[in-house]
Every structure is written in structure tokens, then in C-alpha cells.
Amino acid sequence: MPGLLRGVARTAVVAGTATAVSNRVSRRQAGRWAQQDYEQQQRPAYEQPQEQAPPPAPPAPQPAAPDEMTHRIDQLKQLADLKAQNVLTEEEFESQKRLLLG
């Protein structure tokens, strides 16, 4: 029975310590946030940081011209034929396909 009591007491001490530390951290963080809010309210309007617009989105890739697309399809068919004839390995085929499709 003393071992069980000792285990329960140890658990209670650990839990109590963890709770105390957690509460202290929460209070310190709340204090910091309150201080930052206070400092921002005390600043003159001209010193307030201005929000910047997000950077523009990158341009969308241009679709390939019909002639270029037809050319790529023909090249893919040729690659597939070479692979079917065992002239190209699977790795070579995938590598060339990635180059074509960019």
C-alpha cells in the first residue's frame, strides 16, 4: 500500500507542477500581448505600420499552340513505339516524357 500511495502522491505533484507552469506561461504571454496592444494604441497614426498588399500571383502558364501540341503528341507516340519495341527502357521513356511535357 505505501508504494501505491507514493505513486499517487508523485502523480499529484507532477500534475500540480505542470499546471502551475502552464498557468504562469499563459499569464506571461497574455501580459506581453496586452503590452503590445497598449504600445500600438499609443503610437501616432503616422507611425502605424501600413499593411502591404500581397505580392501578385505568378502568371498562369500559357497553353501550347495547337501546332506545338500536335508535335508533342506525335513525339510521345514515337517514344511509346520505341518503348514497345524495347528500344527504350521504362526509365528512358519516363525521362523523355518528362522533358517533352516540361
Rank of each mutant, 00 (worst) to 15 (best):
M1D: 00
P2H: 07
L4S: 14
L4R: 12
L5K: 13
L5V: 14
L5G: 15
L5I: 14
L5T: 14
R6F: 09
G7M: 11
G7T: 13
G7C: 08
V8W: 09
V8E: 13
R10D: 04
R10L: 07
T11W: 15
T11F: 13
A12Q: 11
V13I: 15
V14R: 04
V14E: 01
V14H: 03
G16E: 07
G16S: 14
A18P: 05
T19G: 15
T19Q: 12
T19E: 12
A20C: 12
A20G: 15
S22T: 13
S22L: 13
N23G: 12
R24G: 10
R24K: 09
S26R: 14
R28Y: 09
Q29R: 06
Q29T: 08
A30F: 00
A30N: 02
A30L: 06
A30T: 04
G31N: 14
R32S: 15
R32W: 15
A34Y: 04
A34H: 03
Q36K: 05
Y38C: 08
Y38N: 09
Y38Q: 13
E39F: 11
E39V: 10
E39Y: 11
Q40Y: 02
Q40F: 07
Q41H: 10
Q41N: 09
R43K: 07
P44L: 06
P44V: 07
A45I: 08
A45C: 01
E47L: 13
E47K: 10
Q48H: 01
P49D: 11
Q50P: 05
Q50W: 07
Q50G: 13
E51W: 08
E51Q: 13
E51L: 14
E51Y: 03
A53H: 11
A53P: 13
P54Q: 05
P54V: 00
P54R: 05
P55R: 09
P55K: 03
P55L: 11
P58V: 06
P58Y: 01
P59V: 08
P59N: 06
P59W: 05
P59T: 08
A60D: 03
A60K: 11
P61R: 03
P61A: 03
Q62I: 00
P63V: 03
P63N: 02
A64S: 13
A64V: 12
A64E: 10
A65M: 06
P66R: 06
E68L: 02
R72C: 01
R72Y: 04
I73T: 03
Q75A: 14
L76S: 02
K77E: 05
K77D: 06
K77T: 06
K77Q: 10
Q78E: 15
L79E: 06
L79C: 03
L79Y: 00
A80V: 01
A80D: 00
D81G: 04
D81P: 07
D81W: 05
L82H: 02
K83S: 04
A84M: 09
Q85V: 01
V87N: 09
E91Q: 08
E91W: 03
E92K: 02
E92G: 04
F93R: 00
E94R: 01
E94M: 01
S95C: 04
S95K: 11
Q96A: 09
Q96P: 02
K97L: 05
R98P: 04
L99G: 13
L100E: 01
L101S: 05
L101C: 07
L101H: 07
L101P: 12
G102A: 15
